[in-house]
Write a protein that binds this DNA or RNA. Sequence first.
DNA 1: TATAAATCACAACAGTTGTTATGCAAATAA
DNA 2: TTATTTGCATAACAACTGTTGTGATTTATA
Lengths: 194, 194
Amino acid sequence: MSYGDRRVEVADAAWRVIVREGLDRTSMRAIATELSSSTGVVTHYFRDKDSLTLFALERVFEKLFEDIKASVEGREGIERLEQMIFAALPFEACGTPGWQVWIAFLGYSIGRQHLVQEHRKRYDFLSKIICEELADLQIAKLIRDDVDLKLEANALIALVDGIGTGVVINPEQFSPEQQRYLVRRHIKTLLTTS
Amino acid sequence: MSYGDRRVEVADAAWRVIVREGLDRTSMRAIATELSSSTGVVTHYFRDKDSLTLFALERVFEKLFEDIKASVEGREGIERLEQMIFAALPFEACGTPGWQVWIAFLGYSIGRQHLVQEHRKRYDFLSKIICEELADLQIAKLIRDDVDLKLEANALIALVDGIGTGVVINPEQFSPEQQRYLVRRHIKTLLTTS
DNA sequence: TATAAATCACAACAGTTGTTATGCAAATAA
DNA sequence: TTATTTGCATAACAACTGTTGTGATTTATA
């Protein structure tokens, strides 16, 4: 097993502890126990806790970007945009761990400006991706000419964040069909009315 | 100064520390320092840290409910619903501290099921309020008969949560006008098309 | 005024934290 | 083989945590 793979293994153990015990209780020792090893492993693969923390956060978005890329494969037009957004939603129960870790980190970032900036960087990146997607749709005359692309990209992210938050607080808040319905209806407001 | 007022004073000091330093660094000693007093004060007004924590979280929603109540005063119809939603948005910079504290708590709740339940209780309460508002509007034939009230109430909360999250991550993400525009457009999708 | 209660300061406690150092065994390189 | 690095275990460190107890000072009550 390679060095990088082992790092991921440690980070995944951290994920599990975060979801089960909470981020502030995710100590080096707790992660080591989750790995059925000693803290020596953790300190060996990560200089300090901050870098482990950041690496674990990066994996949230890494997975998200992978899912997005996979979901748009071979799709075109509005359906392509829909699938992009769907990829970020907590459809199955397996989707919530990522959301839980993300929310834990976001809360942990309050009072830590450099971590807020990390969230912002990723937010901006996502925003850019969606914005470009919207631009393509606008050129193809599928969405109206007067829509503010940047605003609408952020609005879509906001909708997704809101749904994700709601599902973490109450898994039955939005069913998969309801999530899809809300996203589709939101997107419909951007379509050319012809 | 009454006992209750002093408790609020301690909780407000906790708020300031949370926003400035982070929830996990908000220790009894840090709160005492913020109060320019000793930990004796903190322990005197709160049995333990958990009860302080919960009290500080309650104040987030207490303020929100006050703002909502004040904002609907004397309003009717769709405008009343709009103002309700607006009251929750982080319009001015003064609106973000509450959002920051809320997000910090939500993140802190991951891995603590009883705290997630607290969030859920308040989410459900908000949902009920908005749902009743929507029901009134439906009776008044201002919104369509076929809208799922419970779903739409939750969708409005999700939109607000998403905007609030976005503004905390990047204060310039949504301008006040943009926030209002997004809410108004969302509500428009519920109106009777006549 | 005498008594009781409220308010708060201060110190000490046991436990947990991230970090660092040391050591050992296995894998790798020479 | 020998030397070196890698992978990991263990232990110790100082710093910080929530909690508890003691006591002093002020306020309210009788």
